[in-house]
Amino acid sequence: MALPSTLFSFASRLFSVRQSHVARMIHGTRNSLAAVQQNSQGSSAAVPNDTDFDFADSESTVLADIEVDDTLEHKDFFGVKSLCTPQILFKHKVHYGHKGTSLDPGMKQFVYGIRSSHVIFDLDITNYHLHEALNFTSHIALRDGIILFVARLPHCAHVIEKTAKDCGEFAHTRQWIPGTLTNIKGFQHMECRLPDLIICLSTLSEFGNEHPVISEAAKLNIPTIAIVDSNCSPNLVTYPVPGNDDTPSSIELYCSLFQEAISRGKKERARRIELLEKEITKEMGQK
């Protein structure tokens, strides 16, 4: 495949690059799992390939996952609200917007005022929306969702791709060919799983119009989190975060915050899988 971004391959999930064998086992129903384990204990290494195929089948048909819905009752389960404050945002120059003449009418509600013909964002509002976005991100990471970082910022492309790599997720910071999500079969030539969450660090494409990923994700019912500057429309974005999307220092701040949120969700997931594993082994021992 001659796709510009090497990191953009959702298919790797299907071949269990990321998931451990144990995690794959848990995806299936418990009863079938127990049966398979008994088989493997009884006749050791007799039919390892067959059991592997059984796992694959059960995973594709049964989408049962670990139980995580109790986290939704807590307002701030992952403690992401302590991650950022208006002071930190101010330090990283998040309050600077574009010229007042380019202010989008949809962005008026997030703006503190216009200082010498430049828009200044209200950082209290930005902070609230950033908390919402971070909370959503860590909940999606807990549910083992695929997260895709998208931006068209040549000066920050390396930072964004590195962040995605560090959290074990995906990034697309190169030219976006229309249909990369809607016509994914035409690009990947294999069965693919679409991302469960798209984080846009800038909603503008290289020519100053709206990035096509926003409308494509909306068509496919994929939620989006986006940093919207004063000259972008926040309407189609599910969780808009008003803020400066051009300065490297602010982009670095967003990257570090989202990385922390994702890692918190993944840690919780790993903890729960470990607990379930112990439970299953206990049940096996009793039988």
Binding site: D69, L72, F136, H139, R143, D144, G145, D196, I222, T238
Partner: peptide, 8 residues
């Protein structure tokens, strides 16, 4: 049902 549905 997508994973984000309950979170949303």
């Amino acid at each position: 049902i997508p994973r984000w549905y309950s979170v949303f």
